[in-house]
Design a protein around this nucleic acid. Structure first.
Lengths: 248, 248
DNA sequence: TATGCTGTCTCTTTAATCGAGACATATGAG
DNA sequence: CTCATATGTCTCGATTAAAGAGACAGCATA
């Protein structure tokens, strides 16, 4: 059984997004349909522990340095400056596009590292962003390699755009798996293309993906295939180091 | 009033340090003197929300990607790559030592950014580390500028090394404030020296400090004074940008 | 001055947490 | 092979903490 109080409180932190980084007690109470007194107690407790901080003047709450601290600990453990970073920078060089590493976490994809293209026009992702698995090559390739029961569950969720034509969509994912890589064009904003390969552990469970993205006017089928081959060249090493990191 | 359940649960995360990054249920129960059933519920709830993740094989719990995600959000808001970073890199160049920015948070100092010295032998701090305010120039200078009642409270805490000879120690802090900067030698490990200046908000409340550190064999009183002057040169700009960041 | 806000506090009812112990499972020693 | 002792997880009754309505003080605006 789970702790309801803790669960509700942690869920509150979801409201602190880049778009809405600060909240007052009553604002958050309205947004979450929870009594202001309860919100105030939760926020005060988070604040007391450093997970939030309350601005003394505006009384609004912000994400606190304790989260920064713990986040850095996770980041350091992932050792991104170590083994994977150089590989990603090499790939950014050879493909000429922005390279980024996505990890599967709680049925979503979290971007944990990027190596930016040196070109002036490039795709910019944010480290630490979390995405649903439905859109973008870096996410869909994870979906393609997910174990079948889990995949079906996700495809049939209420928010899933795959729900409408499930059969066809699932077949497309199977094709991706047969091909070994995935490309996509304009799925987020119509301006971007992506190419991605899966990263698996030795038991063939999906861990994440290694992908590139760039402006859609630079997309051509042939270059995409070249870029996919470049990514596949780094796949083995990335998988190995990633597995080592995640298993200790 | 604070939520006891939430407070206890958040305090559990303190046990996940770089030194002990993973915990089993019963291990953590022993370490914290809390019943294993309670620990298991807390960890399971954190895990469910992505704040921890449980290794499927070893069953041990680790800090999860949700913390990474939220931590990145805090980091991005601090906009360290923006205004302050170039200043710190300049200072690293002119002083020849590692420059780092410490923020006051919950009566402790959190290092939020570093600009490393280009020399081969240099002091390395970790971004995201949290320190008590008793040791090191970057922390003591904060203590020196803290408002008197708060300072006295901290100096008299059980773990405070200042408690023994309170009067003399407090006088030393006053000297630091008169001087406007602080230097220290070998307080952590006997191998390191540091020089730091305070960063204040317009109302003269202490926000943090800007400091340098290097191997103690490079320390001389004259160079320290030069380095302090270099830091003081960047103080005004650092204070301004820091204040802007923290107040919105 | 009056009327909205705001965050915080008090108090009673309600419901969730606590905590002991049992259980299944895995690991290692005799 | 078997016994002993770990582990994480589950169940259930007693306790205690959280929920939720409302009141309060402070602040801004009209």
């Amino acid at each position: 059984m789970l702790l309801k109080t803790l669960s509700n409180a942690l869920a509150l932190l979801d409201y602190f997004t880049p778009a809405t980084p600060s909240w007052g007690v009553r604002d958050l109470a309205r947004a979450s349909n929870i009594h202001p007194a309860i919100i105030q107690r939760m926020l005060a407790t988070f604040s007391d522990q450093g997970f939030l901080r309350q601005d003394p003047d505006s009384k609004k709450y912000w994400l606190g340095l304790r989260l920064f601290e713990l986040g850095q600990q996770v980041r350091k453990r992932l050792d991104l400056n170590g083994a994977i970073r150089p590989l990603m920078e090499d790939l950014a060089q050879t493909t000429g596009e922005t390279v980024f590493l996505t990890l599967l976490d709680h049925q979503q994809g979290v971007c944990i590292e990027i190596a930016e293209s040196s070109r002036s026009i490039k795709y910019s992702v944010e480290v630490g962003h979390r995405y649903d698995l439905y859109l973008g090559s870096h996410n869909k390739v994870i979906l393609a390699y997910l174990d079948p029961v889990e995949r079906e569950r996700i495809l049939r969720l209420p928010q899933s755009p795959f729900r409408a034509r499930y059969k066809q969509q699932a077949a497309l994912l199977d094709e991706i798996r047969e091909q070994g890589w995935c490309s996509s064009q304009g799925e987020y904003d119509g301006q971007t293309f992506g190419v991605a390969v899966p990263l698996l552990c030795p038991e063939n469970k999906i861990l994440g993906s290694l992908g590139i993205a760039g402006p859609i006017f630079r997309f051509h089928a042939e270059t995409a295939e070249k870029q996919a081959k470049a990514l596949l060249g780094g796949q083995a090493q990335a998988q190995r180091t990633l597995y080592n990191i995640l298993s200790l």
